[in-house]
Design a protein around this nucleic acid. Structure first.
Lengths: 114, 114
DNA sequence: AATACATATTAAGATATGTGCATATGTCAA
DNA sequence: TTGACATATGCACATATCTTAATATGTATT
């Protein structure tokens, strides 16, 4: 409290930091990206559109696991699938996501944890 | 498989998608940001440097909770604390984080979930 | 040294999450 | 319509995570 402005800032901070629904959405998106399987799926789809079976093979995962995680990724509008006969082609719904991932990559490498 | 290039891409994709330690670090960072309490702490610290007690009051949280989450945030180099007598002043260790948060905010609002 | 205040840590309980099995649903081809 | 393939879903289990209370540690003041 050496800075006289500090107390004032802190006093009013509580009112400004309302728990917005936006906060919930932001956190939900981060949470979705906070899983190795899901990020691997995203990175794979960043390379090429893939069906569930292809994802299963390429990432060496259970089909059920892939479907479950794709479902969560869809809920967050991170991927979208379009049916093509028996298969469903999944792709990133938005290139924006790769920007975010790259941003985080940059942060990680800046701190030399890899 | 209507595209002849597709099979080739998929075939070789498996080799390119190595589970790097970088992936683990990226995911760990996302996971850290995937919690309401931690993001609220980050948003508060984006406004002002704060002690643990101040964070506790401003965010209306248990002191123990704040300490626990600060500990996780420190592990990810998201915040740093410097002791000042009895208090420890916490601040964002890197403005970069706000860029990431803002980026995700943008993505979220683009998809009209708030 | 004793006390008070600030922060960290340990342990425990409640809840959430990821995975895989089994099965259901959807789609095409014969 | 039956069979084969592709994807989704319900369930159960194992594990991880978040929070809290209790306590320990660190720091300043007297």
């Amino acid at each position: 409290m050496e800075d006289p402005k500090h107390l004032e800032i802190v006093t009013h901070l509580k009112d400004h930091l309302i728990v917005s629904s936006e906060l919930e959405n932001v956190v939900a998106l981060f949470k979705t990206l906070g899983d190795v399987t899901r990020v691997r799926i995203i990175l794979a789809l960043a390379e090429s559109t893939l069906s569930v079976t292809e994802l299963t093979e390429v990432l060496d995962l259970n089909q059920s696991t892939v479907s479950h995680q794709l479902s969560l990724l869809k809920q967050q509008n991170l991927v979208k699938g379009t049916r093509n006969g028996k298969n469903i082609h999944y792709e990133l719904s938005d290139r924006h996501i790769m920007t975010i991932v790259d941003q985080v990559k940059a942060h990680v490498s800046e701190h030399g944890r890899n």
